[in-house]
Amino acid sequence: MNALEIKNLTKHYNGFTLDNISFSLPQGCILGLIGENGAGKSTTIRSILGSLKYDGDIKVLGKPISADLKNRIGVVLDEVGFPDKLNVKDVNSIMKNMFTNWDNDAFLGYIKKFGLPDDKAFSEFSKGMKMKLGIAVALSHNAELLILDEPTSGLDPLVRDEIIDILNDFTRDDNHSILISSHIVSDLEKLCDYIAFLHKGKLMLCEEKDALLEQYVFINTSEEKLAELDENAVKGKRSSKWGTEAIVDRELIPDSFDTKPVTIEDLFIFMAKED
């Protein structure tokens, strides 16, 4: 079963179109939604959450999104929007009455694990602390699917690494799935099973991360030799006076080329620049 299924998602704004996006997230997997700022990641997530009107079909845990279904989903947005004067105890009291399956002990456990003070006002929290509180809330009602929109943006590497560890822990259960968007590709590379590239509102590709890393390689060559290759083989290139570096499809080039492995970040940057 798919935890998330998106078919032909289209959303028009003034000057931006999210163009016929389709992808799915198998249950038990982590899918990273990568794209530059303004690529359409947040629009996709807001559509999934039902915050926007859109064309297309979205199924979450096999059903169209509804308020009730959100009891089974944990959501973390780029900004955790609790009112300034609330503290952790207040948040606990609110969420206890908000979610039908709120796990008080799990929440307090996360608060302790994250080292969050329970009597300090939310306004006095650092950005990392606010994000950790948002994650604690998302993880404390036995969610089957986590949807995270830029959870690591603006955080220092140490906190980002901590958050990635927490998310890795969450997917130890085979029924747990994660959709995470970020423009910090290195974070997603550590975490994801599947990668979806969004660029200027279009889905460039959606594939298994390991398959992508296997399929695409770097070659160093000249413009002339590159021009001789099948045009579908070249996903992106960077030319300088010392030669041309290109990312190519391993299957579509002769074996004679010396190849180097790519990272997801390389692939994303080269593909986005090529467009």
């Binding site: 959100k70 947005l77 900004e79 929007g81 300034d84 908000m98």
Partner: peptide, 21 residues
């Protein structure tokens, strides 16, 4: 006003409540 400043409006999309509620 508190909701507007804290961006609770946007954040409430995370919870099992609809706009009507």
């Amino acid at each position: 006003a508190v909701d507007e400043i804290s961006k609770w409006d946007k954040y409430s999309a995370c919870f099992p409540v609809d706009r009507k509620k």
